[in-house]
Design a binder for these strands. Structure first.
Length: 938
RNA sequence: GGGCCAUUAGCUCAGCUGGUUAGAGCGCAGUCCUGAUAAGACUGAGGUCCCUGGUUCGAGCCCAGGAUGGCCCA
């Protein structure tokens, strides 16, 4: 509508663990070995089918909510082309030395058998998780500090919530500068941090000595479990960070080290270190050259011949506690509730586990990530340097490999004999390798077919085989800008010249670490520039109680249900206008209903009002611009309309749909409840004069403009209005409102003075109705005089311009002005007064006989109108009115016969009600009785 | 434990750079209007603008501390 070409390719994220999990469920299996047994080829085929099954459902939703994307040429992340572009991207990074294999501690899901990225872990924290909380005694063997007593055994007291890691303990860490104490008990001594004694609660122990943490460094203690006794290998960190297997040692000891990570927040100030099971522990292991004992396998089962060997770690906890207890090494065991990460899909508890993983060295581009972000325009602004900026500041390397099946294969080949690595950036590159073989038709770059592609090692000539990993599906989505175009294999020029940076992206706030990040990171690593220029970052839709919706909790509102009930436009309008897009919102479908009633149906009613009368009068819209009109009301609404165009345009330019929507709501309210209400007669009167035409032209213009302004918001309603109002009258017009030009304001029609004048008139009318209401006199009863308190000439002038409106709206005969004081002083002397800051009005309450008669005539008109409606007459039908009543009504009807006939479209009024009328009814009006009958005129 | 956001009427939300008596819609009670309207108008009840300090002639808004909730990270 703004004349810009806006390609928006629809796309499908098709890889990833969620799909695998569904297929596992479908097959009734739950482990990697079962998948291998079933056959990776068949398994992945089911994954493909599973994904395809969902596409239709999404397409339907996208169509139904009028989400404007090209669904006919979508990108699909599982297609060979898409994968090939991902390979290309990885190869670029590989060539820059940004891809490496590290042996590091990662959150590991023992059930899925794979590492989770930090963004995945973030999704799975659960509060109030119950875990054991155990205090363990490590027996001191040799004290080099000389500050520990020797007359009874001395124990170092440590604390953990993961007893299963204790067999992997190879050190204890202290805070070097913190104060530690030696406590004496009946049979032994305990050592721990001074500040935490109270929290641990050791009533049976007395403090006998104090020492600094650093004094404890180097103290030797006895391992809880010597790995050699349980057939578990013991490795040790070497200078270069690698691990070397150690020989059998019957009298193994471990020692106390110091660490700046030791806090006094909880525990005992002596931190249990298991380098195989914690990131901090691993780093400490490297730093201090500690032993490395990994007595747990990737399925989370304890290995070795421990009494609890073969058990799943969480199940082993209790057995370990019992074992320690029986050996007198347990001080206490309790249960605590804390926050612990679980697998976001399968809900298995995550284990921190040291293993080999492929990384992208995003930290190498940290400055670029941050400076790129500085160029991005974020809404709401705080995300830029808040959530997203912080995330970039604390950037860590992206662990992007997954030991799974249904994903883009990691394009790294390794020589079976010499270990040489080669990264492949495209299919042709692969095919041109010496000794390339294994290709099958039709081509499928997924496992297991890709695993059969081999070639000769350039170094030693042996066979190169692909490494087993696939990649994080977030890499797939982050590579979308290039992969959707199969860049650089196709569309190279198009991408390089035009489509390498998006103007706009809109996702919810959870994507700061998801898609926003993966797009930004990959774009920065590949092209050193941000992926997108402007972002609207949505808050989440919460349930009516303010809780996040999740399938697991069962509090999800399904879009289709809401749409079925209220329509897509109503849902859309609600989402735009309820609150700023960045705010989380508590969703209640009642509010969608309200939006639809208050706004959409009001607009629809204005439209159908217009259509009804336009048809009666055979109005033909002219495409001439609405010329200068005599009617103030027309000039007023056109002024408002042009102001609206300006406001909506400005708001949308500023990525603020909420303000734009609210301006539209205000305008439609004014259009319906002031412009149309005050203009009804102009449409209704029988002469087709210039004033009537001006009213039609004006309302037509308003509706057509509204249709265009609202097209981006409520595409269906806008299209309906446009097709009927514009397309049917002008066959040459663009066939859809969405192809029409967005309105441009005509500044010349914006009349600030007129707007102010009208605002005053509306306010005065509102006060007048308040005064009437206070006096208990209905608007149908005409009154004589309406006084307005004015403070300036412009107010007087403004009201004079709108005098006829005010008189008619308030059903009074004359409009007078006086000072605020004088008007206020009229109270009680035959006037009712109403006031509000800066304004007051008074309305005469004395009803003369003549006013009463006129009021009666209006009452009768009202009754006849209702009868017309009940009788089912068409709005343009002429009728005959019959009545029987007493002298007062008779007199009233004869004085105001012309008025009554005109208002009710009656040919004549008869003072007798014959039997053959269409409808008759008796009314009681202010104490008078009247029998009315109506009949359609010939 | 850290970061970000929020807290205004029973509910959902406005309140622009500090400036009279803090608003809207819904809901509630009542009155009225209506030949477009399953609409609408008016009146009423309903507020410690989360709390405590501070800055200021003046604070819903600015500052500090705290509370509660949400999200994110550990």
């Amino acid at each position: 509508m703004k004349g810009c070409y806006a390609p928006r390719i629809g796309g499908w994220d098709t890889h990833g663990l969620p799909v695998e999990l569904e297929v596992e469920k479908q097959l009734g299996i739950s482990s990697k070995s079962q998948i291998e047994e079933y056959g990776v080829d068949r398994f992945n085929e089911l994954c493909r089918q599973n994904v395809n099954g969902y596409l239709h459902e999404f397409e339907e939703l996208i169509e139904r909510i009028a989400y404007w994307v090209d669904l006919e040429h979508p990108y699909i992340t599982m297609s060979n082309d898409y994968i090939e572009s991902c390979w290309w991207a990885i190869k670029q990074m590989w060539d820059k030395g940004l891809v490496y294999q590290g042996y590091r501690v990662t959150p590991h899901c023992p059930r899925c058998g794979t590492s989770l990225s930090s963004h995945e872990v973030a999704q799975g924290y659960k509060e109030d998780t119950e875990d054991p909380s155990v205090y363990i005694k490590f027996k001191v063997l040799k004290d080099s500090s000389g500050s520990l007593p020797v007359d009874k055994p001395v124990y170092l007291l440590a604390w953990t919530t993961t007893p299963w890691t204790l067999a992997g303990n190879t050190a204890l860490a202290v805070a070097p500068d913190a104060e530690y104490v030696v406590l004496e008990g009946e049979k032994d001594y305990l050592v721990m941090a001074a500040r935490l004694v109270g929290a641990v609660g050791l009533d049976d122990y007395q403090e006998v000595n104090k020492l600094e943490g650093k004094a404890l460094v180097g103290v030797d203690y006895q391992p809880l479990f010597n790995p050699h006794d349980f057939n578990v290998e013991r490795l040790r960190f070497q200078e270069d960070g690698s691990l070397l297997e150690q020989k059998y040692d019957k009298s193994l000891t471990y020692r106390v080290i110091s660490g700046d990570f030791v806090t006094m927040n909880d525990g005992t100030g002596l931190v249990h270190i298991a380098p195989a099971f914690g990131e901090v522990d691993y780093e400490a292991g490297k730093e201090w050259g500690l032993d490395f004992v990994q007595q747990v396998d990737l399925q989370g089962n304890i290995t070795g011949s421990y009494p609890f060997g073969g058990k799943f770690v969480k199940d082993a906890d209790l057995m370990i506690i019992d074992d320690l207890k029986s050996r007198g090494l347990l001080l206490r065991s309790e249960t605590i509730r804390h926050t612990y990460p679980f697998c976001w899909r399968c809900e298995a508890p995550l284990l921190y586990y040291a293993k080999e993983t492929w990384y992208i060295k995003t930290t190498a581009m940290k400055d670029g990530l941050i400076s790129g972000n500085n160029e991005i325009n974020w809404y709401p602004e705080h995300i830029k340097y808040g959530r997203f900026g912080d995330w970039l500041q604390n950037n860590i390397d992206w662990a992007f490999s997954r030991e799974r099946y249904w994903g883009t294969p990691l394009p790294v080949w390794r020589c079976e004999s010499c270990g040489q690595l080669d990264c492949i950036g495209g299919l042709d590159e692969l095919k041109q390798k010496d000794g390339f073989s294994g290709l099958k038709e039709p081509l499928d770059l997924h496992r297991p077919f890709v695993d059969e592609l081999t070639f000769a090692c350039s170094k030693c000539g042996s066979q190169m085989k692909r490494v087993p990993e696939v990649i994080d599906c977030w890499f797939d989505s982050g590579a979308m800008p290039v992969s959707q175009l199969h860049y650089p294999f196709e569309n190279k020029e198009l991408f390089d010249k035009e489509l390498n940076q998006a103007d706009f992206i809109c996702e919810a706030v959870d994507q700061t670490r998801g898609w926003f990040y993966s797009l930004h990171a990959i774009s920065t690593l590949l092209f050193n520039k941000p992926c997108f220029k402007n972002v609207i970052c949505l808050g989440h839709i919460l349930d009516p109680r303010g809780e996040k919706m999740s399938k697991r909790k069962g509090n999800v509102v399904w879009p289709f249900e809401v749409i079925k009930k209220y329509g897509a436009d109503a849902l859309r309008w609600y989402l735009y206008t309820a609150s700023a897009p960045g705010n989380p919102r508590q969703f209640d479908e009642k509010q969608v209903n309200e939006v639809s009633r208050r706004f959409l149906s009001t607009l629809w009613n204005v439209y159908s009002f217009f259509v009804m009368y336009a048809n009666i009068d055979n109005y033909t819209p002219s495409d001439e611009p609405a010329s200068s009109t005599e009617a103030e009301l027309d000039r007023w609404i056109l002024s408002e309309l042009n102001q609206l165009i300006k406001d909506v345009d400005t708001a949308l330019d500023g990525y603020n749909p909420t303000d734009a929507g609210r301006k539209l709501e205000n305008f439609v309210d004014g259009l319906s409840n002031w412009y149309v209400r005050r203009s009804r007669r102009r449409f209704w009167k029988s002469e087709n004069d210039a004033d009537k035409l001006s009213a039609y032209n004006t309302l037509y213009r308003c509706l057509v403009t509204l249709a265009k302004l609202m097209a981006p918001f409520t595409p269906f309603l806008a299209e309906e209005l446009y097709r009927n109002l514009v397309r049917s009258a002008f066959p040459d017009a663009p066939e859809s409102v969405h192809l029409a030009d967005f309105p441009v304001p005509d500044e010349g029609q914006i009349d600030k003075q007129l707007a102010d004048d009208n605002r005053l008139a509306m306010k005065v009318c509102s006060l007048g109705r308040a005064a009437r209401s206070q006096a208990g006199i209905k608007v149908r009863q005409p009154l004589e005089t309406f006084y307005v308190g004015v403070t300036s000439d412009w107010e007087k002038h403004a009201l004079d311009r709108a005098a006829s409106l005010v008189l008619e709206e308030l059903n009074v005969k004359e409009l007078m002005y006086d000072s605020l004081e004088k008007v206020a002083g009229l109270e009680g002397s035959g006037y009712a007064v109403a006031s509000e800051t800066g304004n007051n009005v008074a309305i005469s309450t004395y009803i003369t006989a003549e006013l009463e008669a006129e009021g009666m005539a209006r009452e009768i008109v009202h009754r006849v109108q209702n009868m017309r409606r009940s009788a089912g007459y068409d709005i343009a039908d002429h009728i005959i009115v019959y009545y029987e009543a007493d002298a007062f009504i008779m007199q009233s009807l004869s004085s105001f016969a012309d008025y009554v006939m005109q208002e009710t479209l009656s040919r004549h009024i008869e003072d007798d009600v014959p039997d053959e009328v269409d409808l008759k009814e008796t009314f009681k009006i202010s104490g008078y009785t009247i029998l009315l009958g109506v009949k359609k005129a010939e």
